[in-house]
Amino acid sequence: MSSIEKAAPMIVDDETMPSTPWYSTSLGRSVLALAVFIILLLLWTAYVSIAKLSPLVLPTPYRVWQSLVENTLNGQLPEHSVTTLTEIVLGFLLGSVVGIALGVITARSQLMREMLGPYILASQAMPKLALAPIMVVWMGFGIAPKVVITALICFFPLLENTIIGLTSTSTHQLELFRALSATGWQTFIKLRVPSALPVIFAGLRVAVTLAVVGAVVGEYVGANKGLGALVIVTQGSFDTPLMFAIFVYLTVIGIVLYKLMQMLESTFFSWRTIKRGD
């Protein structure tokens, strides 16, 4: 979603960029994005009318918009969104907390690493979404199985990134702490954790987008509420415009959650976005 943003340099050096091109200003960027959006909608509309597609196969953007407005105003989409969002948030929190906790334990203890390593790898290779049917068998059609699936999906990026972050501390900085006779705990709290935080946050960003997938796929398998359950219903009733309206909702939810993570991250790392030279 934002590989471009990630690749962009964290430190902006004003001196090396005397003139910003118009498309890099915030107004220019919005204009560009809007233009691309309009072109896509026009192409989409043109394709539907030229190919004479039935709205059952591909509705025009306008039909989608109508359905979106209608089902938002009658409360149907917001209501199902609340269910899905609840699953996403609970699953994300559960998976992240357990993932980080187990990551910390594994990173701190060589024994744990040796003991759990193969199982972590195996469970990572196993496609978690494939477990959705059995979760429904075990936990029924409520939100519990979706929360568990979402948590499972979020768990691994955090486990892995926590271990990587905590064990890849710079050897020079470790030597500094040794020179200062720091205790193991001080080294952990004042060195390993702060230098692992960017990696852990990268894991959170991955997890939050995966969480949306987890909740929706969980609902596909068996649910009576939630946006995923609604997709299955629209499939049965051939209400394709509503199905597209749901996709719009899911995309917006994904983007909002991702942006929230980014905001949280930038409050933690104000030092990374500081500009050079003032």
Partner: peptide, 25 residues
């Protein structure tokens, strides 16, 4: 100690870096 490289903690500002030994002691 002064090492061959500065070895500062990049998430601490200058003053906080200076006070690291104090905190650790």
């Amino acid at each position: 100690f002064v090492f061959q490289q500065p070895v500062l903690l990049e998430w601490r500002n200058v003053l906080e870096n200076l006070l690291l030994p104090i905190e650790i002691f």
